[in-house]
Write a protein that binds this DNA or RNA. Structure first.
Lengths: 143, 143
DNA sequence: TTTGATTAGTTGTCATAGCAACTTGAAAAC
DNA sequence: GTTTTCAAGTTGCTATGACAACTAATCAAA
């Protein structure tokens, strides 16, 4: 059979990603938290006081985007940036009491999100899916 | 085992999607074509003269984003918008000779892209992957 | 046929992602 | 101890995606 481009695997992955984003976005909206901003909060709830650079490293994201997300979180009052004494170029990012409190409500939501996503997938299927995704990533990785 | 949020399936799908986008973006860059703009071109290479609304329907995208992508493609000289005589609200989107010509080079690239993505995946694995993605989508679909 | 609902497309705004260029401070090389 | 290089963050710009509000045109219901 001759596949149209609409059947390309990349497109199906993309659509799935959009659906996932849309779903978690709606769940987090009541807390005034955007999905990727929430990932920064998740890191801080685990370990407060990370630098933007550490956040970027752990999330594998561009430092420019981290800067803008941190800035947005600061405007919302969930975190604050404190100048780092050891390295005057960098900031440490700390939770505010408000941001701290948010975790109690939001962490369970993200955990439930993952459960819902994986609902009906056996351990084996989950492993297979992750294996196949890894294979795709390898196929398109440079070199 | 206790999974950190970094292991969530949604995050792995997201990363894979970003990698796919980045890969095809670099392949299309020499042609001054962005990945999603290219999907519009792909449709037009199959059937010229679609309306923006039809494009949005076929690509399952928001009409506002289609409008902006079409506008960008028009600025680049790949397409032109012609007022539709039957419905004065809508435009038909036509390839320019320049846009037409582009297809000969770009279509093979997208086909090779899909081959590279699926490299090393058996028919069965591909079907399994699509089945599992479909399951995820079902899990998070409203109602 | 007039009104009322729908539809096509646009514009504005926010969130994300990636890239380039820049500033300032730190570190390494000499 | 300079100088050169590197590292942390910022700003600007483009592309995408979602959503709300809007205009103008068509269609349907009365």
């Amino acid at each position: 059979m001759n596949l149209g481009f609409q059947d390309y695997l990349s497109i199906k992955v993309h659509k799935t990603d959009l659906n996932l984003t849309s779903y978690i976005k709606s769940k987090l909206e009541p807390f005034n938290l955007a999905p990727e901003q929430n990932l920064i909060m998740m890191l801080l709830w685990e370990e407060d006081g990370l630098t933007q650079n550490q956040l970027a490293g752990k999330l594998n994201k561009d430092k420019t985007n981290i800067a803008r997300m941190v800035s947005s979180l600061e405007k919302k009052g969930f975190i604050k940036r404190i100048n780092c004494p050891e390295d005057r170029r960098s900031f440490k990012v700390y939770l505010t009491p408000c941001g701290e409190k948010l975790g109690k409500e939001v962490i369970p939501i993200t955990e439930e999100f993952d459960r819902i996503v994986c609902n009906g997938l056996s351990e084996g299927e989950l492993a297979e899916l992750e294996k196949l995704l890894a294979k795709i990533n390898k196929n398109i990785s440079k070199n």
